[in-house]
Design a protein around this nucleic acid. Structure first.
Lengths: 84, 84
DNA sequence: TACTTATTTAGAAATTTGTCTAAATACCTA
DNA sequence: TAGGTATTTAGACAAATTTCTAAATAAGTA
């Protein structure tokens, strides 16, 4: 849960998830949506990957990122339990 | 949303919410559940309050804290939208 | 009023985080 | 093989975060 909350606690990373919801994208395409350097985006992608929120598949020179929302089920459950 | 994710991104604060789910508690009672100084707990409570996750009511010398889960609805909605 | 208790505020120290540039790695193509 | 493109890794730095102790504020009680 810790890595999940940590990954979600950043506007850029949340925006990346919203982008990936629409389409799978490679790292460069993701970076083009932000005014942040590619290494920084790469770092954000790494944190999302650590949380299980995205998966990465190498396609030759490119790495395609996809969203994985199943890890958020645990979060929703946690919230629902708090709500009773 | 930012203050919400920020407030949730800490184990102690999440544990405080779980405590308050069971009972309203005053600041001292909350502090007694952790091995953290009272000023630090006070700070955590402040962040939870800023996010709207708890409310505080002064009862004489004491301040009673209660959980407020309605602000998490927005978070659940955000997650559901990502899931389609 | 003086003392005690509950809580917060202030300020400081250590750690974590987000960002950058430069360099490294990996793959593609002529 | 040489050169170009895509991406990550490394290292540095500023800002934010978590924690602490000491002091301030507010309320209850003798």
């Amino acid at each position: 849960m810790n890595s999940l909350f940590k990954a979600l606690n950043d506007h850029t990373r949340r925006a990346i998830l919203e982008l990936l919801k629409e389409n799978d994208l490679n790292a460069g395409e993701i970076a083009n949506h932000f005014h942040i350097s590619k290494p920084s985006i790469s770092h954000h992608l790494d944190l999302l990957k650590q949380a299980g929120l995205v998966t990465a598949i190498k396609n030759g020179q490119y790495i395609t990122y996809s969203i994985n929302t199943t890890v958020m089920d645990e979060l929703v459950q946690w919230i629902m339990k708090l709500k009773d």
